[in-house]
Amino acid sequence: MQAAPSIVDQGQVPLGLSGVLRRFKRGESVTETGVTLGMVKNVYDSAIEYTGISPGMRGMLMLSGLFTASIAFWGGQFFLFDILKRGKIGIFEASIIFFSGLFFLFGIYFAIKSIRLELFRPEDEPTIFDRKNRKVYRIYRETYAGWGGLVSAWPMKTAEYDWDLIDAEHHAAVTTTGATISRQHGLIFLVRKSATDSTLVDSFAIGNSMQMGEVTVPAVWEHIRRFMEEGGPHLPPGDVLRPIDRPYTFWQCMAATGPYGAKFRIWWREQTALMVLGLIFFPIILPTMSLLGVFTWLSYRTSIPIKWSPEVQVAIQSPQ
């Protein structure tokens, strides 16, 4: 990785559609109030712990990955069978067969990758911001890309960084469905090697694209900044800790992902228009939500318990 200049003092860059929208300064407020979006799961004497896997995200990786794989499989077989029906193989037909094979390989890769990402993952991948020791601690699973990564072991790791070597950025990526264009936002932390060597050695995110937006990314950073730099509160006024609401049984997972049982009445009362659309598209919605419930259950059933090391526990003290 090439050496990168320290970005903590470079301030704001011009707002674009994608890439780095803003580089934050530790000593500069970016919003009037900070928020946590309900991501703080524990508070300690001088530290706060952010969850890394939101409960509603369990099963989503497998569902989206297998959906992408199914589209690739469908595209591959569509073109392949069309060519085979012609009964004549020329240069053009051979090229179509070649690209059909690439579709199948793409689908296989995404199917296996999504299953591995979802199963046997940590029960959480939390991050602790410790202002007393000016440290940041993480528990995470290291994953590897490429075909070799599919058969490699993905180890669980714990990392410790100096807060003063971490820079924060607001990232955005443009996505399209073919009919609409949208931007996904992220709060990304970059870790430099040392005070004299700006080589980037690691990076991590707080929140996910479903939680974070153009306005909420700066607000989440502002809460962390104030807590670490100005002795700010563990939680913003009126905020509460994320409840531990892990579903344990199969039916609890099904109820957590769709309008089943008592949730049907709650969703009908609070999201009537959405529920009407759900009933209209019932043949599509029901199988999709049911699959998500099954994948959520599998993700929880295979999740690996995590525990902070004794050294980290001593550093952050006991929960308040």
Score class of each variant (00 low, 15 high):
Y44K: 04
L286K: 07
R226P: 07
L190N: 05
L105Q: 03
G52H: 06
Q77W: 09
W251H: 07
E169M: 10
E123H: 14
I285M: 12
W147L: 13
H185A: 01
V13L: 13
R26P: 09
G186K: 09
Y144R: 13
P259K: 09
V43K: 09
H171K: 03
V191M: 00
V13I: 11
I139A: 12
E311T: 12
G148W: 10
T257W: 11
L17S: 14
F92C: 00
V174S: 03
E118H: 10
P243N: 06
S209Q: 08
I115Q: 12
I244P: 13
I53Y: 01
R183S: 05
A72C: 08
W154A: 09
Y248F: 14
E142K: 15
G207P: 01
T31H: 10
G149Y: 07
W74I: 06
L15W: 15
R23N: 08
H170A: 00
S6V: 13
I89W: 01
P126D: 08
A315R: 02
W297S: 09
L105F: 06
A219D: 06
G261T: 12
E229G: 02
D45W: 13
K25A: 13
Q12E: 15
S194R: 00
F282N: 03
V136G: 03
S303I: 05
R141P: 09
G207V: 00
K307A: 12
